[in-house]
Amino acid sequence: MAIIFKGFKETIFRTLPLIVLFYICISEFHTQFFYWKIFSFNLQFIIIYYWILRDPSILGYGFVFLAGLTNDVVLNLPLGTSALSYLFVSLVAAYVRNATVRSSLFTDWFTFIIAILIGNFLYYFLMNNFSDLGLSYTDLFYNSLFTFILFPAFWLIFDIYKKIFISRVND
C-alpha cells in the first residue's frame, strides 16, 4: 500500500509541470492584463525552457509539440505556429544543456534571451508571412521583455519545487 501511494505521489509531482503547461494552453488563463496592456508574458516559454534545461525527463518533446498545437487551436492561429515556436525554445534549452557543464540562474537567464528571440522571431515570421492575422511588433517586444524579466522569479519557484518534491521523490 505504501509503495503504491509513493508511486502515485511520485507520478503526481513529476507530471505537475506538464499539467500546468497544458492547463495554460487550453484554459482561459490569462498572462495579459487589460488595464495595463503592455504587461504580458509567455509563461509557456518559461516552463518549457526551465524543465527541458534542468530536468528533461519531466517534459517530453512530444508533449511540448501537443501543447503548441492545443494553443494554436484555442487562439485560432495557423496549426503548428506555437508548436514550432515551443520546439525551437526546447532546442535552445537542449543545446545549452549539452554545451554547459555547470549552470546557474544567471547562465540560464542569459541563454533564455536566445530562446525568447528565436521563439518569438519564428512566431512573428510565420504570422507575418503565412497568415492574414495582424500582429503588433511593440506588443511582441513587451511580451518578450516581461518574459525575460520574470524568468528568475519562476526559475526560483521551479527550483524550490524541484528540490522539495522531485529530488525527494528520486531519493
Binding site: G62, L91, L126
Partner: peptide
C-alpha cells in the same frame, strides 16, 4: 545532439517533431 538525441523519456527527437510541425503548418 540536441536535435537528434532521445533520452529515456523522450519518444521523439526534436528534429522529427520540428519537421512534423512544419508539415502540419504547411
Amino acid at each position: 545532439s540536441a536535435l537528434l538525441q532521445r533520452g529515456a523519456k523522450q519518444k521523439f527527437s526534436l528534429f522529427v517533431l520540428i519537421l512534423l510541425s512544419a508539415f502540419i503548418f504547411a
